[in-house]
């Protein structure tokens, strides 16, 4: 961009590389500023403020949005995560088993549940199961249903993550454990799995973030007022007040959790990168 080295280089079509790059970048800035200006001028600010930033509507959401809605979201997520982790671990071990049928069952499970939309699983648990097996009650009511539905979906993804983690532990670790007299199961529990979990902590935390968002599908299960989580609560209030402010507040509550978690994941990934070096 400075004139000094321009003279040293042979001139091609009038512009040097750095000049071209500068021009292109300048053009992009101009376009961006123009878009912002156009939006600012054309948007109906009063209307937007009315729709999304009604202070008294936001105020009347507290403390319920935290003590009930956010609390339920967290509860649904954690219970789904625990079920998913336990089931995912089982499926991962089956997938790595030397017994053929175990591997096939695990493979089929993973293919099916990774291939279906989470919403369909929720509808299946909420509607199809009670119709198909009348009289059966899923333990724990809504909480049980959500834990099961989220867990079934999460298990498929987590199983693949856990399997990859177990396979990433060097073979010598298992050999060292076996040579010391550990049985295969003990070696797995004491030596391999703890190391696998260090490797997969970042992707597992990512899965937690995904589950946190997927817990909004509870909307389709039909829940009592006290069982509402962020999305349902936000939507209900939005229709009651005919205003979008509750949606905005609910959204902010999600970000309150997901952004720090995402930050934690990036920190862990950076640390893991450093450890490799």
């Amino acid at each position: 961009m400075t004139g000094t080295d321009v003279q040293l280089q042979p001139r091609k079509k009038g512009m040097t590389r750095s000049q071209k790059r500068g021009l292109s970048r300048g053009a992009q800035y101009v376009l961006f500023v123009a878009a912002v200006v156009v939006f600012a001028l054309t948007a109906d600010w009063g209307r937007l403020k009315n729709q999304f930033a009604q202070w008294d509507i936001a105020k009347q959401m507290f403390p319920d949005v935290i003590t009930m809605a956010l609390k339920n979201t967290v509860l649904y997520t954690l219970s789904g995560f625990v079920v998913g982790l336990a089931l995912g671990m089982l499926i991962a071990l089956m997938r790595l088993s030397s017994v053929g049928p175990y591997r096939w069952v695990a493979g089929i499970y993973i293919e099916i549940f990774r291939g279906l939309p989470a919403l369909l699983i929720f509808i299946f648990i909420g509607v199809a199961v009670p119709l198909a097996f009348p009289g059966t009650e899923i333990v724990g009511g809504t909480y049980g249903k959500v834990a099961l539905a989220l867990g079934l979906v999460a298990a498929a993804y987590m199983a693949e993550t856990i399997r990859a983690g177990i396979q990433a532990v060097p073979k010598g670790q298992l050999e060292a454990a076996r040579s010391l007299g550990f049985s295969p199961a003990r070696a797995m529990i004491s030596i391999v799995i703890p190391q696998a979990f260090r490797i997969i902590l970042p992707p597992l935390t990512n899965e937690l973030v995904l589950l946190f968002k997927d817990s909004s599908l509870v909307l389709f299960l039909g829940v009592t007022l006290e069982e509402r989580e962020l999305s349902k609560y936000g939507r209900d209030l939005a229709s009651q007040t005919a205003n979008s402010t509750p949606i905005l507040v609910a959204g902010l509550c999600y970000l309150l959790v997901t952004i720090p978690l995402g930050f934690v994941v990036r920190r862990m990934e950076a640390k893991a990168q450093e450890a490799v070096k």
Partner: peptide, 20 residues
Amino acid sequence: IDAVRRRIGMVFQQFNLFPH
């Protein structure tokens, strides 16, 4: 085999200490 291996110590080229 686990019982017999307790009587046999093994040292590997790559050490194979448990890093955690």
